[in-house]
Amino acid sequence: MAPDPTPVTEPFPISHIAGRYLLFDINAISHARRHHNICGVLIGTLPNLSQQNVFLGIPLELMPEEARVLVERGHAYIVDDVRAHRKGCLEMSRDERLKYLREMDRQGLEFAKGVREKAEERAERALREKGLVGRRGKEESEAPQESADAEGVSTSNSLLDSTPSTSPSVAVPEKKLEPHFITPTTSYPPLSPPSTDAALPLPSVPKSYPLFRYLNSRGYFAMPGLRFGCNYSVYPGDPLRFHSHFLATGLDWDEEFELLDIVGGGRLGTGVKKAYLIGGEDPEATPAEEEEQDGASAKPVRAFSIEWAGF
């Protein structure tokens, strides 16, 4: 497997906003997916592809269970993003702001340069395909308006003009380039990444958490399961590549539940080519050895899968 595009230093921050756990850093999102089986739910709109609901983008919403697993194992910590922004952005000093604006201007200029270069490349390629000389085409694509307005010469004329002009490829005056405005994805900078000392306590989780943690430690991926009437739909690997295998519902060890739940879950699961899975944590058992590394509270979990036999 190829190495990460950009390595992430652990623990990485998880934004806590209005009671929800969000990830904004693309590297952290990829990292959690690759190394910790945490895929979360992308809830943001993709710029340029903002008229569809099939592919979504940043931010990534983590279930409280996912956030908790990451924090318990020391991979991440939780940051009060609301307070950080209130302090860092609403009360930003003038110097800081100007510095930040200059930096954004520089990035914007760089981006504009990139866009122009790409456009030139495209224009050149298109012209070459048509059998025209790239260099001449370049000049035309860059300054169509100037040539048309100032000299009154149509662009097609300048193309046919056979007199060698004076080095047209350097005709990109730097000052003509207008910087694009950029909306950054994360707030670092201008905010400095928060320190781990100010981390918030562990997220509170539903009673299905032990089952989630157990499945996660076994390399399974989980997504929210309301659509299938369960707590989690569980994947054997990255949901990008695999179909889910289980519809999991976490219960307490001694909890009584309706037998009809088994029938309903089993039938629904079988109908969508999955198995219904129930599981819970034994509160009286001693922690199993392999589980111990995950945290002192990890007790053994038993899980059962239910499938319609279909004789």
Binding site: S15, I17, A18, R20, L22, F24, G44, I58, P59, D81, V82, A84, H85, R86, C89, M92, R97, Y100, L101, M104, F181, I182, T183, P184, T185, T186, S187, P190
Partner: peptide, 17 residues
């Protein structure tokens, strides 16, 4: 001009505040 609001900042502000 003010500092640009990042996507993260926008969520913190419009949802969090």
């Amino acid at each position: 001009v003010g500092a640009p609001m990042s996507l993260q900042g926008a969520y913190a502000a419009f949802i969090g505040f």
